[in-house]
């Protein structure tokens, strides 16, 4: 493959990912609204298009047409920058998530991942830590006490939960002996899913993921009843939409990460034993990847509309006194497992 071909293929992959991301993000908003409606025995948006299927577009148009208000007392450059950091971080994380095995399209061997980086997991961790800057900047630069409180809460919360998240991942990395997501997926062949092998790590990771994405029950940075809208109180129009998109993108990435790290990625147990032919198998595997993500997104939404928000001290207590020891325990557990089976 020439350099040019590699560039073109990568470009096509990026384009595909971004389009897919934007669409899934908008539709996860739509599904969030529909599912919450069902939970409350309502109907939800069902007017724009068949069953409201075009609602996301209507929403986007609405947001685009709104006036962009920048508070007079804000730090204007940072105020403008913040939503872009949030969005950029959310989208670029996706580069290292593998969607399927290696396939051959038009004679080219293509890896179904934008960048198969061997330290992909570190990359993800690094970027998500960057994500907190978007929120903190937003909170600080708005010049509003509510926003500031939201921003401060976000950074404290993210730092706390990143610790247990990191230790949970350590277990996975130990299992796969690699930092490459592709390798991690491959290591979960058959039923060797990390969720089954290291359930404690799975639980701590899922909970940390909730906290990292600021989703209920951990949505303290935006807690409407206390902080009006938290860090995005002073945002409107597309800038607000950017935060909104970033939050949902984060949710999708968190789902993708959970799938990749714990639920076998695109793996469907023993599908290669069925002899279905390469193309079909690949399709099923890619489908399985998205199906798993979809199920997790549903789980995210479902949890949000079932569980009330924690109090701030509870949040910190859980983070440091429960999650952190548990994730350490998980590392020990994996070590023991590895010792026994190797």
């Amino acid at each position: 493959m020439s350099i040019l071909e590699i560039i073109i293929i990568t470009f096509v992959k990026i384009l595909f990912i971004i389009t897919a991301m934007l669409l899934t993000v908008s539709y996860s908003v739509y599904f969030e609204r529909r599912i919450s409606a069902w939970i409350q025995t309502r109907l939800g948006p069902n007017r724009v298009g068949w069953e409201g299927i075009l609602q996301p577009f209507a929403d986007v148009f609405k947001l685009l047409l709104k006036e962009d208000i920048v508070p007079e007392k804000s730090n204007k450059p940072l105020h403008t920058l913040a939503p872009f950091i949030a969005l950029f971080v959310a989208f670029s994380t996706y580069a290292v998530i593998p969607m399927g095995p290696e396939v051959t399209i038009f004679g080219y061997k293509v890896n179904l991942v934008v960048a198969d980086v061997n330290i992909g997991i570190l990359y993800v961790l690094a970027l998500t830590s960057l994500g907190v800057y978007g929120i903190t900047f937003a909170g600080w630069s708005s010049g509003s006490k509510y926003s500031l409180l939201g921003g401060v809460r976000a950074s404290a919360q993210m730092i706390s939960y990143e610790v247990s998240m990191g230790f949970s991942i350590a277990g996975v990395v130990m299992m796969a002996s690699s930092l490459s997501p592709v390798a991690i997926v491959n290591s979960q062949y058959g039923w060797m899913w990390n969720a089954i092998v290291q359930p404690i790590g799975f639980i701590t990771f899922v909970i940390s993921a909730f906290a990292e994405t600021n989703r209920l029950p951990f949505d303290l940075p935006e807690a409407e009843p206390e902080l009006v809208g938290g860090y995005h109180t002073e945002y409107s129009s597309m800038k607000f939409a950017s935060f909104f998109l970033a939050e949902y993108a984060n949710m999708i990435i968190a789902s993708a990460m959970i799938v990749t790290l714990y639920l076998g990625g695109w793996q469907v147990p023993y599908i290669d034993k069925l002899g279905l032919g390469e193309t079909l198998t690949t399709l099923i595997q890619v489908g399985a990847f998205f199906a798993k993500i979809g199920a997790l997104i549903f789980f995210f939404i479902w949890v949000r509309w079932s569980i009330p928000r924690f109090r701030y001290d509870q949040l910190m207590n859980i983070g440091w006194k429960v999650m952190f020891p548990l994730s350490l325990l998980n590392v020990v557990w994996v070590a023991v497992v590895l010792m026994i089976f190797n």
């Binding site: 599912i35 409606a37 069902w38 939970i39 409350q40 025995t41 309502r42 109907l43 479902w302 949890v303 509309w305 079932s306 569980i307």
Partner: peptide, 19 residues
């Protein structure tokens, strides 16, 4: 308790809507 809550909301998801 969390699972109980989740079960409850899941059940109500299957109920017909009142809208």
């Amino acid at each position: 308790e969390i699972f109980k809550g989740l079960a409850l909301t899941f059940k109500s998801m299957l109920k017909p809507s009142v809208t």
